Simulated assay, not measured.
Amino acid sequence: MPTWKKSSDKPLRVGVVLFDGFSNHCVANAIEPLRAANMLGHKRHYEWQYLTMNGDIAESSSGLKIVPHGRLEDAKGDLLMITPSYGYQDFGGPGVQRGLRAAARRFSDLAGLDTGSWLMAKAGLLAGRRATIHWEVLTAFSEAFPDVNVVRERFVVDGNRITCSGAMAAFDLILHLIAQDHGKALALDVEQLFMAREPQTQHLTGAARGRLAKGAVTHMQAHLEKPLTVGQIAMRCGCSQKKLEQVMQRDLGASPQQVYLRLRLNLVRRLAEETNLQLSEVALRAGYRNPSAMTRAFKAEFGVTPSNARHRAT
């Protein structure tokens, strides 16, 4: 589990160390979910800054240039993401090693994304830890660093050391961290926003794919305007209502009723903030025959009315 201390008042401070040849896909998959969590949570849960070793512009593998906020040696915070991709072995020299070891004293946790694990291991920051890396170089990584317990996983969290196998896995990792910091419901909201895939719960459970919970959420999303009963959803999933309740509580940390309500209220929020539909029409589309009932449920969940949410979004 990451070692940073969650605070309701202060955002988690994230540093992103860029190297020439970095993958914009990987960096975007790590940062965009944090931005979405701030937006959907209506609070600055996370703040981040882009860094390079010397403060110079970094150019991605596809030619995207990023002007950093500063040098790594001047930064400190809660989580440092190390993000080389192509040409990573060119960055493993003594200067980078010293810089990363020094940064490990200024940041609570270090995360190697894609091939960032290689630089962390080269600096001696993964000795005795479980770690992964992009699977194309997994064998070479294991051979080069016998003091690291190398595993073939999408991402690994071992205390204050985090490693991740690539761009798509970075998205799963960040959802996992959001769920840990601010609850599984917010992580589910972020995943829905990006339409990342058919609803799934792998990043929320930290274990095997929750097929039953996935199927249930899929049925819920398909029936927001005319909600099904939990019994009907269970029947469509081929299980008892009791079994469905047990599985969703285990995998999502919430009952089917709570998950369904959250999905419907998320629809209310999107329609209120992004359209000019009358709130009576919004209520119907989210399965409410009574706009007042929708407003009460929405305020209980988000602390504001749909009207206030619409006004705040303009």
Rank of each mutant, 00 (worst) to 15 (best):
S7P: 06
G70C: 06
R101C: 00
L265G: 00
G206R: 01
N160M: 05
Y50V: 05
E274A: 14
G124I: 04
R105Q: 14
A167D: 12
V14Q: 02
N29H: 14
T139W: 01
M220F: 06
A123R: 07
G92H: 05
Q49Y: 00
K76W: 02
W118Y: 05
A300C: 11
F107L: 02
R285H: 14
R129M: 02
L277D: 11
R161M: 09
P33E: 01
S240T: 15
A286I: 04
G116I: 04
E136W: 06
T52F: 11
L126K: 11
S8R: 13
D181H: 06
S240L: 05
A208F: 08
L80M: 03
I174M: 10
R161F: 09
F298M: 08
L252Y: 11
L110H: 08
R35C: 06
K5F: 07
Q89I: 13
H25W: 14
V268C: 12
L186F: 07
L110V: 03
G287W: 04
K6S: 12
A196Y: 13
C26S: 15
F155G: 09
R262L: 07
L186E: 02
E136G: 15
Q200I: 00
L177T: 02
R262Q: 10
I162Q: 08
R312G: 06
D114H: 14
V137P: 03
F302C: 05
T3Q: 12
P306M: 03
F141I: 00
F19Y: 14
I174T: 10
V282L: 04
I133A: 06
I66H: 11
A127S: 11
D109A: 05
Q200S: 14
G21R: 02
T115W: 06
A293N: 12
R296Q: 12
D158N: 03
E301K: 15
G166I: 10
K65C: 13
P306Y: 07
M168K: 08
R270E: 00
Y288S: 09
I162A: 10
L177Y: 02
Q278E: 12
R296H: 12
A121Y: 12
G15F: 01
M53D: 02
Y288N: 06
C26D: 15
T305D: 08
A123N: 09
L51S: 07
Q97W: 01
P199T: 10
L263F: 03
R161G: 01
R161N: 06
L100Y: 03
C237I: 11
S8Q: 07
F302K: 09
